[in-house]
Design a binder for these strands. Structure first.
Lengths: 206, 206
DNA sequence: AAAAGCTTGTGAAGACTTTCACAACCTGCC
DNA sequence: GGCAGGTTGTGAAAGTCTTCACAAGCTTTT
């Protein structure tokens, strides 16, 4: 299998959402053109993206909504649930625990960690905050697959080091800082400030 | 001026952060190589990115830290403050109000709106929640420059319509849904679920 | 059964980004 | 001054991603 670009994977997620909506509307078939419009892409792009994984459509008809949705779910790993650890029980952490879309797509936050002794033991949206020291054992016991980092930027690197040591292979980081990790560990960054800065640039440029 | 790619702007933001850190360490000069390492890029990329806007370095020496930081600040519009409206006073909204990095970079959330009458009038982290009906006037009065959408995905499109009508030109959207807007309006999406899905794909692939 | 109307799948072209390679230039040392 | 060591700035090459163009194939109509 040739390498799939990150952009393609991101678009697949969007197609998946569009397909889910079409499924709720009981639409049976969808053309690449229609899927493109609701997914913010072009019809060729939809077809090219899908062609990376096989041939799922019928010429003249389009793609079967349910079936294509299931196919994408399997490609992205959405047909199963994933256990997620959240590190950082601040307000962003709280928001992430409550974030419905995670649960909807099968991402279950099953443990929250913090290093602040004042927080450890407290209940946060239904989860007991655990001491970050126990992260390695708890992760093993609960079979946690991925981690979300939502700590202040000063703490982020040490948290990542701990996660790497504990064997985590993928990490979603919300701290606005560039993190170092060995190449076999994938870190994705959500940097909300950078997003605003790109918008501010847009306002400056016009 | 030729078109600047989005990737370049995003990297400039990262360089800016690295420069700020070097400035705190009182480092005077920095080479593209060093800037690249801390900013997660290559040295050539740093130089190419900067060369879009002018020549800021000295051969053999590198770039003056403070001066380059200021230059980037001006390019990105970080030398001034921006007034930001937040729509959606849920837990994500609360987290965004408290998010320090926004304030640090000059993005001030000066108003929070919600459509829920039960929330309107309440205090959220120091801000009184306003009725979304008043968004147009309040935005004009407070000279609000940009908007953040942090409402459930079912509400997002109607909120965006309202924002567009009120004259907003740039919007940062956190709702996990594809939004439609006229071409002169820039929408940036932060879709946390899609980020996790990309990670889940990574776990599937290996 | 042939034609018309759609739509997929894909090689090739085009556009955009990144990387390479190197001239140009600065500083410090001999 | 001249040389060594280091770094920028940039045209060109390489690589990646997107768009174009069109054959292939399905369904409906006549």
């Amino acid at each position: 299998m040739r390498k799939i670009s990150d952009a393609t994977i991101t678009r697949l997620s969007r197609y998946y959402r569009s397909l889910a909506r079409l499924e709720r509307k009981n639409q049976e078939m969808v053309s690449s053109k229609e899927l493109a419009q609701t997914g913010g892409a072009t019809s060729v792009q939809v077809r090219k993206d899908l062609s990376c994984f096989g041939q799922f459509g019928t010429r003249g008809l389009g793609y079967p909504v349910c079936q294509l949705k299931e196919t994408i779910a399997h490609i992205l790993g959405l047909h199963r649930t994933w256990n997620v650890a959240l590190v950082g029980a601040g307000s962003l952490g709280a928001a992430l625990i409550s974030y419905k879309e995670f649960k909807r797509q099968g991402f279950h936050i099953v443990a929250v960690f913090d290093k602040d002794p004042a927080k450890v033991g407290k209940n946060k949206r239904g989860l007991i905050i655990l001491d970050i020291k126990n992260l390695p054992e708890v992760s093993r016991e609960l079979k946690i697959d991925m981690a979300i980092v939502a700590v202040p930027k000063t703490e982020a690197q040490s948290v990542v080091n701990l996660l790497v040591q504990a064997g985590f292979k993928v990490i979603l980081n919300f701290a606005p800082v560039n993190l170092m990790a060995p190449p076999q560990v994938t870190i994705r960054n959500v940097n909300m400030a950078i997003e605003l800065e790109a918008l501010s640039y847009r306002l400056m440029a016009n």
